[in-house]
Design a protein around this nucleic acid. Structure first.
Lengths: 189, 189, 189, 189
DNA sequence: AATGAATGAGCATTCATTCAT
DNA sequence: TATGAATGAATGCTCATTCAT
């Protein structure tokens, strides 16, 4: 039993293909929603034979879990970047959150919608719950006092703003979002 | 071309069957989610032949729209009842909203989940948008000043609390929700 | 809800197709064994689209049950014929049974093998048990005293001779079988 | 070209793994029937990679042959034990055979069913015929005069009793089987 | 000697929809 | 007005087998 994982940390052929499949899945969800994910649609998108999907992800749920984990990680990174850059601009915490939301609902809208759908799917599929927690952690990391009433309200509102923003036809601007975020953060000072 | 709808307002046989089909659809969504809705699954649930579904609802989207309208109306009625009864108990607006949420996430959890899924589907299917607005109106009717920043925060938070409550394993109690609702309503006095 | 079954007893279109499918299934089993039965193989053999199989026989087991019933009925009829014609020839009960066995293992070998496989499948699939009983009844009808020890031995031996005859490369002749059948029937006089 | 089989008769690593695979195959057949045998199902049961099956048994038939040989040998040993112990109890040849059958259809039912399925498969797969003969030899060894009519009847009946016993829901007891066996052996005294 | 990776073919089954009746 | 019958397309998934390592 010898492993093909390289000692130097580089990925094996299989790992690389797994990553390609996950990324193709994300593109499918962006385009057609979670309902559009099937062995065949992902295989078509990734340019691999359908049996290759089942080989690397024995059940379709396994693929969704891997995709949710990847998407949450990517979104966390992107959120970190946006907040960092708004810190440099000196727009304060409310500005940072508003810009994060505007980015999520504007330029990153597709990814956000994909992530949101996967996150909501956890309500029906217990297998996705642990992975969904990763995204909740991203949101939680936006604040510091998870037990405070005000912070719970803030968290719920962020979630609701994302939901509503995704249903609206036009994405909101950071300027439109800012007063609401400020209102929510004010009691937390 | 003659209409079968009676002048006296009583429903024709066809209308009654349409209603049965819509109710069967709601039960299917509660049990298996929107993804579980098909001509056949609904027909099985309603005890009618599959072709009967296509006959009354030419496309599947027509059925989903009718179901969303019915579910939103039912939920609005139920919300009205809960708020009315909490008014009698004298628990104030915050108490009323907290009890509405606890009811939606507890006893009415199945219906809430079904409605929420249909509501989110509107993001992908424009045909459902007008019907989805009905549910938004229910939420909006909980407050009075739709233009205020505080109210927008409140609305978003209600939405987020419903989303998070549906993903959590255990439904929250009204007592747990009350302080958050009070916190959100306080600036609106 | 009106039925398409003709008042005059003639079969509906659906019934006719069901019969064609069952007969195609029998041919597939003769050629490739029960293991060769699939929606696709039967559809190919019957010259109908695969979905037609599922329409008329929701699960594959339903098709196997219908096939077992038909095959047992056909074999019962054939057995009756052989025994009747041997009675005319005056060869007595033992001769009749020997000729039945020779026919089953010779000219009707394919059908016998098919029926036998279906019959044995009942050991694994409870759904086939009631239908398998039909074939047992055919064998039982060869004798009259089902409770007698001698008759139980006779029945078991008939079954065993069929099994062994199907495994042997060359089918046995009635003349070869006759003494064994006589030996088994002797104590039953 | 050098052989790894040790001169001293001890098994090489490869031989041990082959044996493990055969035993896993037997367990699969007991549980799901011959139809459940595949490279993958056996590999799962044995806890080895699928390619290991193909490596040791180039075609699936090779695996089935090896399994049939092993199963027949095991059953022969078990039959010998049962007959020996019934000889000690002094229950005579008929008692010995009845107890062998009761054991085969009761405690050893799973193995018997597996062996029987493999044995019948020989009717379709010529590659299994030589191995199937081993099991026939076990049955034959129960008697001494293979040419006698009475013995042919006895052999066929043993086979039929096994078949019928496997299809019945409840295994028969030795006491129930004894009179039939005595009836069959009586003329052979 | 042994096994990860891969894949084309096939599986049972469900589907939305059409159409003759 | 309703519904049995029908079907092409798609679903998730398993399969035997090959091959590079």
């Amino acid at each position: 039993m010898r492993s093909y994982r390289r000692v130097d940390g580089r990925k094996t052929r299989g790992d690389r293909r797994k990553q390609e499949i996950v990324e193709a899945t994300l593109r499918v969800i962006e385009r057609e929603g979670v309902a559009g994910v099937s062995h065949r649609s992902v295989a078509r998108e990734a340019g691999v034979p359908p049996a290759s999907i089942t080989y690397h992800f024995p059940a379709l749920d396994d693929l969704l879990v891997a995709t949710l984990v990847t998407a949450a990680a990517e979104m966390a990174a992107r959120t970190g970047d946006v907040i960092e850059s708004s810190r440099i601009k000196g727009s304060g915490p409310a500005g940072a959150v508003a810009e994060m939301l505007a980015d999520a609902l504007g330029p990153s809208r597709g990814r956000t919608a994909a992530l949101h759908e996967l996150y909501l799917l956890a309500a029906r599929r217990p297998a996705l719950r642990p992975a969904a927690r990763l995204w909740i952690d991203v949101l939680t990391s936006l604040g510091r006092q998870p037990d405070e009433v005000g912070f719970r309200a803030f968290l719920a509102a962020i979630d609701g703003m994302l939901t509503q923003g995704l249903i609206d036809d036009e994405p909101p601007t950071a300027a439109e979002l800012l007063p609401v975020v400020e209102h929510l953060l004010a009691p937390l000072r």
